[in-house]
Design a protein around this nucleic acid. Structure first.
Lengths: 109, 109
DNA sequence: AGAACATATCATTAATTGATGATATGTTAA
DNA sequence: TTAACATATCATCAATTAATGATATGTTCT
C-alpha cells in the first residue's frame, strides 16, 4: 500500500478512536446541545476533573470539540456539526446491528 | 445517567472501535468493492493469516462484514452499505480536520 | 483414508490506552 | 498580593487491545 494511503488510514483510525470510548462519547453527547464547562461535564458524568479534562484535550486536539474561555471557565462545544451528524448516523446503524455488537467479544465494554 | 443510556453508549463505542484500527480499516477498504478471501486480504495487506482472521472475526461478530463459504474459501464483504457510507463520511470530516488529528498526540498511530 | 490447502482458535507477549492523584497554571475577587 | 476557584498537565498504575506462532478444524482432491 502507498505510504500516503497508510497515513490517511491512520488518520481515519484516530478519528474513530476519538469516538471509541464511552467517556468521550458521553462528553460529546453532553455538549451536543449546549456548551458546558469542564466542571459541569465532570459532575454530570461523575468522573474526575482530570479525567474529563484529559479526554477533552484529546477531543480538542483532534478538532472534534472547540473551546472558548470566559473568566475562570472554559466552555466546550462540538467542533463541527458533522461530528453530530456522524454520531447520529452511527445510531441508525446501531439500530440494525446492535445485537451483533452487543455480543462482540473482542471489546470488553 | 440511565443504565439503558450507558448500554447504548457502550454499543456505540464498540462500533467506533471496530473502525478505530488501521488494520481493520484496511480490511474494510480492501473489500469495499468486491468480496475477498482471507488469504487474498492477508497477502494484500501483508499481515499474517491469523491476524487478519482475528480481525475479520471481530468485524464479523459486530456485523460490519459478512461472509460466505465457497469450497475451501471464505469470502468476506461489507455487511451493510451504511458501513461504507460511514467510512465515506469520515473522509469528509477528515478533509477539514486532518491537521488537528495529525498532530493529535493521544493516540500513537 | 491421507495430503494439501484455507481458515479459525488459542495462549502468550508486547504495545497501547484509560483512570487516578498530585501538582502546576491561569483567572478572579477581596 | 493572597485566597479561592477552574482547568491543565504529568507520572504512575491498571486494564485493554493487537500481533504472533503454534495448533486445530474443516474442505477438496487423489
Amino acid at each position: 500500500m502507498l505510504k500516503q494511503k497508510v497515513d490517511q488510514l491512520e488518520l481515519k483510525a484516530k478519528l474513530f478512536r476519538g469516538f471509541g470510548d464511552v467517556t468521550r462519547l458521553s462528553i460529546l453527547e453532553a455538549i451536543l446541545e449546549e456548551e458546558k464547562t469542564v466542571t459541569e461535564i465532570s459532575e454530570e458524568l461523575d468522573h474526575s476533573q482530570s479525567n474529563i479534562s484529559n479526554h477533552l484535550s484529546c477531543l480538542s486536539e483532534c478538532g472534534l470539540v472547540k473551546t472558548r474561555r470566559e473568566g475562570k471557565n472554559r466552555f466546550y462545544s462540538l467542533g463541527d456539526r458533522r461530528v453530530a451528524k456522524l454520531l447520529k448516523q452511527s445510531d441508525d446503524i446501531l439500530t440494525d446491528i446492535a445485537e451483533g455488537i452487543y455480543s462482540c467479544v473482542n471489546y470488553k465494554k
